[in-house]
């Protein structure tokens, strides 16, 4: 079990180095997703299956999709098609794919060898005690988190509003796209709340 931890840690650090050294935002996002999945595996090894699931679903799923959406919005125009074609070249995705394959191998090994908690000697803290503690002593924290999410909702709505009198007529179509993107951004905190 220790070996799994060390391999995952190495993958996470390597992928994170990849994130901060890429020039292209989408390549960096690919590496960041691999890094998040590696950390999710580490959570599972450490006996936190709920945190592992949340990491994979909310971080690597929802938040990264939001990033990709905004990057795609900012790359409108004919050069975006050319760029899209260059993204499909093998040397662009072979690095993240190799790291993800290592993680997949570890995952298969873990699934083959049964529950991680029993093997590692760590008592796995499942969702039940987490939920009981969340809505017991930490109830105030849940209320504060809901306030924070409401503030994020209002703020994203305000920032995504169409500004009148600032942009020229030529910018109107792009602005419409932004308004749609903001609709997605506004819905995101709701998804996080559902994850809670």
């Amino acid at each position: 079990m220790g070996a799994i931890f060390y391999i995952s840690a190495a993958v996470a650090v390597a992928a994170t180095v990849g994130v901060i050294t890429r020039y292209n935002a989408v390549h960096a996002l690919l590496y960041l997703i691999v890094s998040l999945l590696a950390i999710s595996l580490i959570f599972y090894i450490l006996g936190a299956p709920l945190a592992a699931a949340l990491e994979a679903i909310i971080y690597a799923g929802a938040i990264m999709v939001l990033f990709i959406f905004v990057i795609m919005i900012l790359n409108l125009g004919p050069q975006a098609v050319r760029r899209e074609r260059s993204w499909l070249k093998p040397r662009m995705w072979v690095g993240p794919a190799a790291l993800a394959l290592i993680l997949a191998g570890e995952l298969v090994y873990l699934l083959e060898s049964g529950p991680a908690g029993a093997q590692a000697g760590t008592a796995s803290v499942g969702p039940e005690p987490v939920g009981a503690t969340l809505f017991g002593p930490y109830l105030l924290g849940v209320e504060l988190a809901s306030l924070l999410l409401l503030a994020g909702l209002v703020g994203a709505f305000h920032l995504g509003r169409r500004e009148t009198g600032e942009e020229t007529a030529g910018e109107q179509e792009i602005q419409t796209g932004v308004a749609k993107a903001e609709g997605a951004a506004v819905e995101e905190p709701g998804a996080a709340l559902g994850g809670e």
């Binding site: 987490v130 988190a145 999410l149 994020g152 995101e188 905190p189 996080a192």
Partner: peptide, 14 residues
Amino acid sequence: FIFILTMAAVEVSL
């Protein structure tokens, strides 16, 4: 971790 996740979601959307 759940609270940090909530904060990260709000921070990213804003």
